[in-house]
């Protein structure tokens, strides 16, 4: 057997995260999520709101809110289990090895600190640089994320910047210490279409130049096109399909993925004549406090079988490098 531990940068195995709200039933946000990310790879996580994708992002940095608990599983980063590391070691990893690009650039920057000093803070907390070196480092970073006049940007405050510029500052913070893995949680969903494209281009460029692996999270399949190498589709706290982006878009396996891609295709590509209706997925995402026993998509699935409501489908591999949790692709005897 080949030892795979070097090949993978990050290995998430059977991760289970539960929220214990102060009043109300516990909610299992992640229910056995497994995912591997190789160095320099862009992995996309596609899922709708409430599927647990943001919980996954916070769990990877062990920055879950206090009422959430990792109940089971492991997160191996370069062979070390992040879940068992003390806060000191985690702090050294955050920002230096794994960085999170926050969701809403308008809220993610400190309103009373200059853009430059916020980038500088990240350098300061990880690298032994003097003031001069730090300033130079920040200016280089600002230039790298697309500011032509970094000196001016250095001393501006967030409220003086546009949404796209703020997101660039956040990216500069995230890549300041050349992390091996970037997590982009809905990093463009608050921006205009044209800015979204620019940010995706910037992220691709960072990955090319520094070999940074990127875990990109979005609810919009279009975001991943031409950007992600592989994609994982999440539904109600579980990953239902992992495959290369080509397969996800070209020959999606899981009925949920198929429906999502169909919706995206019809609304985006055709711009169909008015009065034609868009394809939809009937129903709603299941209530996280009372999940179905079997496949979680079963109540909304148009290809459901008897077995689907009884057992959760195991992982099948109908094509090379494509894993799917659906009984369509395997024996369905009980």
């Amino acid at each position: 057997m080949v030892d795979n531990s070097n090949k993978y940068l990050l290995q998430v195995h059977e991760l289970k995260v539960t929220y214990f709200p102060a009043n109300g039933d516990p909610v299992r946000a992640l229910d056995g999520v497994s995912l591997d990310i190789c160095s320099g790879e862009v992995v996309g996580i596609l899922g709708e709101s409430g599927c647990g994708k943001s919980t996954l992002a916070s769990a990877l940095l062990k920055m879950l809110p206090p009422q959430a608990k990792c109940e089971d599983g492991s997160i191996l980063f370069r062979g070390r289990d992040l879940l068992s590391l003390p806060e000191r070691d985690l702090r050294a990893i955050r920002g230096q090895e794994i960085s999170l690009i926050p969701q809403d650039p308008a809220l993610a920057l400190n309103p009373v600190m200059t853009a430059g000093s916020q980038v500088s803070e990240v350098l300061r907390s990880h690298l032994p640089l003097n003031t001069q070196q730090r300033r130079q480092g920040v200016l280089d970073l600002l230039r790298e994320v697309g500011f032509n006049e970094p000196q001016e940007i250095y001393s501006t405050y967030p409220h003086q910047l546009s949404g796209g510029q703020r997101q660039r500052i956040a990216i500069a913070q995230a890549v300041a210490c050349r992390p091996a893995l970037l997590i982009a949680d809905e990093a463009t969903s608050e921006l205009d279409v044209s800015l979204q494209a620019e940010i995706v281009t910037l992220l691709s460029q960072i990955r090319r130049q520094h070999g940074t692996a990127i875990l990109a999270i979005s609810h919009d399949p279009v975001f991943f096109a031409g950007f992600a190498d592989r994609m994982a589709v999440m539904y109600a706290g579980r990953i239902v399909e992992v495959a290369s982006t080509d397969v996800i878009f070209g020959r999606p396996l899981h009925p949920y993925t198929q429906a999502l891609v169909r919706i995206a295709t019809s609304s985006v590509v055709t711009g169909a004549a008015k009065s034609a209706r868009l394809p939809v997925i009937d129903g709603e995402t299941p209530n996280p406090t009372s999940l179905p026993v079997g496949c979680r998509f079963e109540p909304r699935c148009c290809e459901r079988m008897d077995v689907c409501s009884r057992r959760y489908p195991p992982e099948f591999m109908p094509a090379p490098l494509a894993n799917v949790n659906c009984f369509k692709y395997g024996e369905h005897v009980d």
Partner: peptide
């Protein structure tokens, strides 16, 4: 969110 983000960048 900005303090949370700063924590995510490993600031003490």
């Amino acid at each position: 969110p900005y303090v949370h983000a700063a924590r995510g960048f490993g600031i003490r």
